[in-house]
Design a protein around this nucleic acid. Structure first.
Lengths: 248, 248
DNA sequence: CATTTTTTTGCATTTTTTTGCTTGTTTATG
DNA sequence: CATAAACAAGCAAAAAAATGCAAAAAAATG
C-alpha cells in the first residue's frame, strides 16, 4: 500500500467515524504504529485532522459547521448502511438530495461501479469523489433551500432516463396520503424521479413516518422499499409491509 | 513495446485499479523502472495521473485528498477581488470551475443581484449560498478530475444561452498560441463558453502566463479582459494590452 | 541510401524517502 | 503512584528517485 493511499484511507475513515485509533489503523493496513503515527502527524500538520493521544479526530467534528448539526446523524448513517444493500454493480441509480442521501454517498464502497444521476449539489460532490462511479448531474435552476436543481429542464431530463432504482430522501410518508413534501418545485422533480425509475426506495427517519405535508409526490403503492433506522420487524411497519413494501 | 502503448496501458491500469506500482508495471511490461518513472512523470505533467512515491494514483481517487491546500491562495484572492469589478447588478454570468473562480464566488457581495451559470460543482455550491444570486447549473456527465460537467448536453445548453460575461479560470495563456488547456472534454466546454458569451474575462496567476499546453480553447483576440494578481502596468502585460485586451 | 540528429532506453552512482526497530520519556488511568 | 500504552528521537536497512552517461533505435535530412 502506497503512503498516499494510506493517508487517503485514514481521512476516509475519519470522515466516516469522526475518529480513528492508531492501533486499529495499524492492523487494518498492516503497517507499524510508528508509520501510522507519522502519517497522522503529516495530516495534522496540513490541518486535515486533529491528532490526539492514541489516534486522531475529525476536524469537522471538533471545529465543525457542517456535520455536527445534522439532525439524528447516527440514525441517518444506519439508514445509509441498510440502503447500500440495494445498490449493485452496474446499476443506474437516481437520487434526490437531503442529508440521508449524502450519508449514503459517503459510505459507498470504493469497489462499487455504478452510474449515479442526481440534481443535488452536495450529493454530486460526494459521488464525484468516488473512484468508480460515473456521475451525471441533472442541470437547471438551483433551489436555494434544498441545493437541488428544479424546473422543466431537469424534469425533462429525468423523463428521458430509465434508472434501475430511485433513492428518495423524504420529509413525510403516510400509509394513506403517501409520500408528501412542502416545496412545489422540489415536489415536481421528485414526482418525475419516482415515475422514471423502475423501483423506488424511500429513506427516512422514523420520526417522519406517519406524517404528511401539503403536496403529494406519490402514492404509497409506488414505493418499493422503505428504509429507516429501526428494526424492520417493528410494529410501526406492519401496515406498510401489508401494502407490499419491503422494509429494510 | 512502444512508448505510447506503454503510457496507454498505464492509464488503463490506473482507470481500472485507481493506482499502479512502478515495480509492477516494470515487470508487466518488461522495461526498467527508470523508464516507468519517466512515463509516469510525463503523464503527471499532463495531469493524467498523480505521481507518488512508489507509483501513481488516479486523479479522481486523489482529488478529494488534495482539496484544502490551494496553491497561491493569496494571489487568487487578489485576482478574485479585481474580477469583482466586472460584475454588475442584473448581469448574466457564465463561469468555469477552478480554484480562482471559487475564490471569486466566495467574495461576491451579498447585495449583488445576478444570474450565474456554471457546470462546476464547487462553484455552484458557493453561488447557492449567496442570498440574491440565481444559479443555473449546466448538467451532464461530471469529469472526475476537474469536478465540472462535460459532454454534448452541457455544450448544447451553453450554446443556447447568451450571457453578458464569461469568467474563465485558465491553465495556460500565451500571446501567440492563445488560451490552452490539456483535458479534451474540458476544452470543448470552455470553447463553447467563450463562443457563447458577449465578453470573456480570463483569470490566471502570472505563473501560468506565457505558457501553453496541447489543446486550444481560443485565440488571444477573443479575450476581452485579463485578470492576474500583478499590477496592470507591469511590463509582462504590454503585448497583451497591445492586442486590445484590458488588463485588470 | 548514408549520415546526422533526436529520441528513447538501460545502467551505475548518489541522494532521498520510507519504514520498522530500539531506547528512553511522557501520558492516561485505575 | 504504578503500570501499560503511546510517543519521540535516532538509527539502519530497503526501496525509490534523481542524475549523468552511453548505447541503441528511430527520425530527419541532404
Amino acid at each position: 500500500m502506497l503512503k498516499r493511499e494510506r493517508q487517503a484511507f485514514i481521512l476516509k475513515q475519519i470522515n466516516l467515524h469522526n475518529r480513528v485509533l492508531s492501533s486499529d489503523l495499524s492492523t487494518e493496513m498492516q503497517v507499524s504504529e510508528d508509520t501510522i503515527r507519522r502519517d497522522l502527524m503529516e495530516l495534522s500538520n496540513t490541518d486535515k485532522l486533529i491528532k490526539v493521544h492514541g489516534g486522531a479526530l475529525s476536524k469537522s467534528f471538533h471545529s465543525s459547521f457542517l456535520r455536527e448539526d445534522i439532525y439524528q446523524l447516527d440514525a441517518k448513517k444506519q439508514i445509509a448502511t441498510k440502503a447500500l444493500n440495494l445498490i449493485k454493480d452496474g446499476m443506474f441509480v437516481l437520487t434526490s438530495g437531503g442529508t440521508t442521501i449524502i450519508e449514503l454517498a459517503r459510505i459507498l464502497p470504493p469497489e462499487l461501479k455504478a452510474t449515479f444521476f442526481t440534481g443535488s449539489i452536495p450529493a454530486a460532490y460526494e459521488y464525484a469523489k468516488h473512484p468508480n462511479i460515473e456521475v451525471i448531474f441533472i442541470g437547471d435552476k438551483i433551489s436555494k433551500g434544498s441545493q437541488i436543481t428544479v424546473g422543466g429542464e431537469a424534469i425533462m431530463k429525468i423523463n428521458s432516463i430509465k434508472p434501475d432504482l430511485c433513492m428518495l430522501g423524504v420529509n413525510a410518508i403516510d400509509i394513506t396520503t403517501g409520500v408528501t413534501d412542502n416545496d412545489w418545485d422540489v415536489v415536481q422533480v421528485k414526482k418525475a424521479m419516482v415515475e422514471a425509475a423502475s423501483k423506488t426506495a424511500v429513506l427516512t427517519i422514523t420520526e417522519k413516518m406517519n406524517t404528511c405535508q401539503k403536496l403529494k409526490i406519490c402514492e404509497i403503492t409506488q414505493v418499493d422499499y422503505l428504509i429507516t433506522e429501526m428494526d424492520h420487524e417493528h410494529d410501526l411497519f406492519k401496515a406498510y409491509a401489508n401494502a407490499g413494501i419491503e422494509i429494510l
